[in-house]
């Protein structure tokens, strides 16, 4: 049985408690709605994350295959030299958006694909296989950034779901049952007091009748 609250067994307290139970039940319902919405949002993003992860893995395999081909073509040390000459790609700006009170990152990155001239290495002294590898890795970068945003959102949503679940459970299994048990206790106590009072009146009546007889 649930514990009871430390309150005086009076009618006033009973009324107050009934009001509190009403409020707690409403709060519980609302939090449960929030929890459902969060779970729905989580699974919507989860599907996206799953397909992005699959796509990224495939692109990585392709990118490393093309890199291997480029290494065969121009040699490992030459590839390293070329990589040193590559100019940095665009910077990523991370903004914020809010999902039901959960701040999550918003990365709106434009395409990372560049032309051969923009990459910064000399295309005269390299081979087309190097360009293909660079292009494939730019595609990987684009997907990786998109996936980073989605996975971070998932993590934060999962944390919020856990928190909300804890609150919902606290209301459902501790706070509301405790209040209900207290109401029951006060009602029983008040009934008991009424019975005592009734018995006392009966006794007084009997005594008065005996005296008058």
């Amino acid at each position: 049985m649930a514990e009871i609250l430390n309150v005086k067994p009076t009618r006033m307290e009973l009324l107050k408690l009934k009001k509190r139970i009403k409020l707690a039940s409403k709060g519980h319902k609302l939090l449960k709605e929030k929890q459902d919405a969060l779970i729905m949002e989580f699974f919507t993003i989860y599907d996206e994350a799953l397909s992005l992860r699959r796509e990224l893995n495939q692109k990585m395999v392709e990118a490393f295959d093309t890199l291997r081909m480029a290494e065969i073509d121009v040699g490992v040390s030459r590839i390293k030299e070329i990589a040193l000459g590559v100019s940095p790609n665009k910077e990523v700006e991370i903004r914020r958006r809010n999902i039901m009170g959960v701040p999550v990152p918003l990365i709106e990155a434009e395409s990372f694909k560049r032309s051969i001239e923009d990459r910064g290495y000399s295309f005269v002294s390299t081979s087309p296989s190097v360009d293909t590898a660079a292009q494939k890795f730019e595609e990987v970068l684009e997907l990786a950034i998109r996936l980073a945003e989605v996975e971070e959102t998932l993590k934060r949503l999962a944390r919020e779901i856990e928190k909300t679940k804890r609150r919902v459970n606290a209301l459902e299994y501790i706070i509301i049952p405790r209040m209900e048990a207290t109401v029951k206790f006060i009602e029983q106590r008040l009934d008991e007091m009424e019975r005592e009072n009734f018995f006392r009146l009966k006794r007084i009546k009997a005594i008065l009748e005996a005296k008058s007889a």
Binding site: R20, L23, A24, G27, L30, L31, K34, N98, I99, M100, G101, R167, A170, L171, I175, R178, M179
Partner: peptide
């Protein structure tokens, strides 16, 4: 107090 917790939760729920 339980009421305090509930009221806080309810006021927080639409802050977004």
């Amino acid at each position: 107090e339980p009421d305090e917790v509930i009221n806080k939760e309810l006021s927080r729920i639409n802050l977004h």
